[in-house]
Design a protein around this nucleic acid. Sequence first.
DNA 1: GGCAAGATCCTCT
DNA 2: GAGGATCTTGCCA
Length: 179
Amino acid sequence: MALWDGTAITVAQALIGATLATKSPSGVTSVTISEAEAYGGIDDPASHARRGQTERNSPMFGPAGTLYVYRSYGIHWCLNVVTGAVGDPQAVLIRAGIPQQGLDLMVERRGRCDHLVDGPGKLTQALGIDNSLDGRRIEQVDWLSITAPDRAPIVEWKPRVGLTKAAERRWRCVLLARD
DNA sequence: GGCAAGATCCTCT
DNA sequence: GAGGATCTTGCCA
């Protein structure tokens, strides 16, 4: 069973502590995922899919393991992993991580040496992720991988941030410590 | 066709 | 801590 099989809630928790890695001609970069946010289906007012399927959000309606990359505030890319069944638009937003490999490359991409991957837009920039991945399946992208952690980490569920709708739902999963 | 909102980040004070 | 940048999407007239 793949990491992304399940509901947005269970997948968000499963992704915490997992290793997200990308390869490029410049080298390999990888992070330990430390923060992920669950987005429910069309009944989640904060989800892009709340008004049904559109051209923009159609990857969310695809099978589990599809990547949904959208532009935020006209500037940043945000990476989501689609979960749930086809036609059930659940997804997990990968918000932040802890740098592991390729620190130099991340610094180069970010143009600074601090705050490399502590936000959704920063994480995609540091890992070289953009909308070329939108609608692709994780298994079909040979330069990106997500690997489950060896041991289940200790996590905490907190309210979502940056939202104006349904922000009170405690669907943000944060890495507390690794067992 | 026009307008407002938005799952953010950076810079300046 | 506050405010500006920047642009796509969806709603409404």
